[in-house]
Simulated scan of single mutants.
Amino acid sequence: MNDARNPVKSVQTSLEIVETIKKHDEIGVTELAEEVGLTKGTVHCHLATLENDGYVVNTNGRYRLGLRFVDIAHHVRRRVPIYDIVTEEVEKLAEKSGELTLFTVEEQREGVCLYKASGENAVQTELYVGYRNELHHTAVGKAILAFKSQEEIDEILAEMDLQSLTDETITDERELREELEEIRKRGLAYNRGETIPGLVGVGAPIRDHDDDVHGAIAIIGPTSRMNDRLDEFSEMLNHAVNVIEINATSL
């Protein structure tokens, strides 16, 4: 992620306050001031401005994020032209597979979940719409990364910190590059316990006629079920991607 050359301190403070409220769901001024390291007076001024514009709500001295963010999220999500086409197929995948399915796009070198659906046997994870993940350890992230240009891959890997989340996470750049090459050959990416132990994911990129990557979709489930049906789920993904890419040509 690029650092701003001339960051506006007051804007940074407001954003830090918003992020802190998000983390706590709701919080009082004193707790908030202590956590962000500012005076209560300064924090209260920021809160008053945010409240006036509907970004936070004050209930008996406890602040929570306002529904104004839902409106913003709606408009941000609508800028993805294939959103409606993809979400319909993601829902179908969840129903057919019985597992957790999702649609992720890349922004600022991270994968951002834009949609998820749960089949009848879907596992419960912390994943939610808007959740951000590094690209190197998820099926959708690797599917997106693998089909970028070599120049883009080089730039991303140069900035990326290949942190380990589990014993299976790829943390060696050379190994990751070899994995990306394999993904390009087979058209599918796998996450075998690299993010959460015991969870397997299979992901596929969504591309346009110029081979530009618009995101990726995936099916995720426990190792015990996924390994037995991996070929079946891979076929489901390929079919869904084919439908999405054909329908997207008319947009």
Rank of each mutant, 00 (worst) to 15 (best):
V241P: 01
H24F: 12
T104E: 12
G221R: 07
E16C: 09
T101I: 04
V18W: 09
N58G: 00
E35P: 00
D231Q: 13
S14F: 10
Y83W: 06
E173M: 11
P197K: 09
G215D: 07
S97K: 08
E19F: 14
A139P: 07
M226R: 04
T49Q: 09
H209R: 12
R77N: 11
C45E: 14
F147L: 08
R132M: 11
G203M: 07
E194C: 05
P205G: 04
R79D: 12
T42E: 10
L65V: 01
N238Q: 15
L180W: 05
F69G: 00
G37T: 02
A240C: 02
Q163E: 15
S250W: 14
A143K: 05
V57R: 07
E175G: 03
G66P: 01
V129Y: 06
N242Y: 12
N58Q: 02
S224N: 10
E120Y: 15
L93A: 06
N133Y: 14
P7E: 06
E106N: 04
K142R: 04
E232C: 09
T169H: 00
K40V: 07
E51F: 01
L102G: 11
L67R: 07
T104I: 11
D71W: 00
E95P: 00
T195P: 00
H214N: 08
F103P: 02
E16K: 14
T39N: 01
Q163C: 10
D25H: 13
R132V: 10
A216V: 03
I72Y: 02
T166N: 06
V90K: 00
E134M: 14
Q150C: 08
V18R: 06
L50E: 02
E134A: 15
D172L: 03
I217N: 08
V200G: 04
E31A: 09
E155K: 13
T195I: 14
N6K: 15
L188I: 10
Y131E: 10
N133D: 14
K92C: 08
I156D: 12
L93I: 01
I72N: 00
V213K: 06
N52E: 12
F103E: 00
G54I: 00
Y55M: 09
T42Q: 10
H46S: 01
V36T: 04
N121K: 11
G111K: 01
V56F: 02
A122F: 08
A117F: 05
E182R: 14
L230H: 04
D154K: 13
L50H: 03
